[in-house]
Design a protein around this nucleic acid. Sequence first.
DNA 1: CTTTCACCAATAGAGTATCTATGGATAGAC
DNA 2: GTCTATCCATAGATACTCTATTGGTGAAAG
Lengths: 109, 109
Amino acid sequence: MTRKADLLPGTLDMLILKTLKRAPLHGYGIAFSIKTLSHDVLTVEEGSLYPALQRLLLQGWVKAEWKMTETNRRARYYRLTAAGRKQLSHELSQFDEIIAAITRVLQNA
Amino acid sequence: MTRKADLLPGTLDMLILKTLKRAPLHGYGIAFSIKTLSHDVLTVEEGSLYPALQRLLLQGWVKAEWKMTETNRRARYYRLTAAGRKQLSHELSQFDEIIAAITRVLQNA
DNA sequence: CTTTCACCAATAGAGTATCTATGGATAGAC
DNA sequence: GTCTATCCATAGATACTCTATTGGTGAAAG
């Protein structure tokens, strides 16, 4: 009935961009990083991740490049562009604002 | 483009339930309360609110009753049921967990 | 007395984000 | 040689929210 909620809708792009800010990474690595850092609370399904990466490419917020991984595999590395960096900071501050607002409602309601 | 984001998807039910926990209220009052408490950051559009209330009714988390307001108007008052109270506490703890997880990712990524 | 504003309800249709399910493919371990 | 972990990606369904609209009433202002 209620949403399954592996993550909060609307936050995926932000999480991906933030992950890529540290270093360029391939899809699988992005998902793994988010899952690990969140202590397995946030699971990014591949069916969510790759469409999201396509969106980010279209927006020009990331660029992609085929490379070899350390384990000798072909992988598509995504890296943040300047526009992506700007977008990330925008999404971060907006997220903060919304969370603060929700917190106010939850405390006073 | 990016989502307009009057609020975070997935949080509306929780905000409504929490608002009704304080006291039964009609739709207009719920929207007004959320908007006011959030300092105008969160705006619940009527096209989001009423479908959400229908969902909550169907789930049995709220009950509705027609009454007169203090200003002598017909209004449909919604109040939290026992099941709704339980659902609310579930959603609250899940929300906390997800926010904590997102925060971890944002700080370490 | 009539006009306007704040109050109050609800639905249809569109758009967007995410999930489920699926289909490949390869490196290295055992 | 088979299994597991690593890697990519799409199609279709589902769920949630927004835009836009319709419809109505009480009360205060003019």
